[in-house]
Amino acid sequence: MTDQQAEARSYLSEEMIAEFKAAFDMFDADGGGDISVKELGTVMRMLGQTPTKEELDAIIEEVDEDGSGTIDFEEFLVMMVRQ
């Protein structure tokens, strides 16, 4: 866990972390443990947004600390705390 990830967790109660985990699992449609650009786009479109591929890439790049091209749960928490 990076310093950013530990800091993000410090702002959240266990209840909030559990709620974010449920949301993360909804995004992680294939159950792979991370959110891909495609999965992020699908959920955002379900919520009425129309992000471009470039916008989706930028969202993932902003929090993808390990350079995997996807968002894992710890990175997702950082993203949610920043919102």
Rank of each mutant, 00 (worst) to 15 (best):
M1S: 05
D3I: 13
D3M: 12
D3S: 09
D3A: 10
Q4T: 11
Q5L: 09
Q5R: 14
A6L: 09
A6I: 14
A6F: 14
E7L: 07
E7T: 11
A8H: 02
A8C: 00
R9S: 10
R9L: 06
R9P: 09
S10P: 05
Y11G: 10
S13G: 10
S13D: 11
E14G: 05
E15K: 13
I17F: 04
I17W: 05
I17Y: 07
I17P: 00
I17T: 04
A18Y: 15
E19G: 09
F20M: 13
K21G: 02
K21V: 00
A22P: 01
A23K: 14
F24P: 01
D25Q: 06
M26V: 10
M26C: 11
F27G: 07
D28I: 13
A29S: 10
A29N: 01
D30T: 11
G31D: 06
G31M: 03
G32L: 10
G32W: 03
G32I: 15
G32E: 12
G33A: 02
G33M: 02
D34S: 13
D34Y: 03
I35W: 00
I35S: 00
I35L: 07
S36V: 03
V37R: 04
V37N: 15
K38V: 06
G41P: 04
G41L: 06
V43Y: 00
V43Q: 01
M44R: 00
M44G: 01
R45P: 01
R45Q: 15
M46C: 12
M46K: 12
M46D: 04
L47F: 06
L47E: 01
G48D: 12
T50P: 07
T50E: 05
T50N: 09
T50Y: 14
T52S: 09
E55K: 10
D57H: 08
D57Y: 02
I59T: 02
I60Q: 10
E62S: 13
E62D: 14
V63M: 13
V63H: 14
V63R: 07
D64E: 03
E65F: 14
G67I: 03
G67P: 06
G67S: 12
S68Q: 14
S68M: 04
T70A: 11
T70V: 12
I71T: 02
I71A: 02
D72W: 03
E75Y: 04
E75G: 11
E75I: 04
F76V: 01
V78R: 15
V78P: 11
V78L: 13
M79V: 14
M79P: 05
M80L: 05
M80W: 09
R82H: 10
R82C: 05
Q83F: 12
Q83E: 00
Q83G: 15
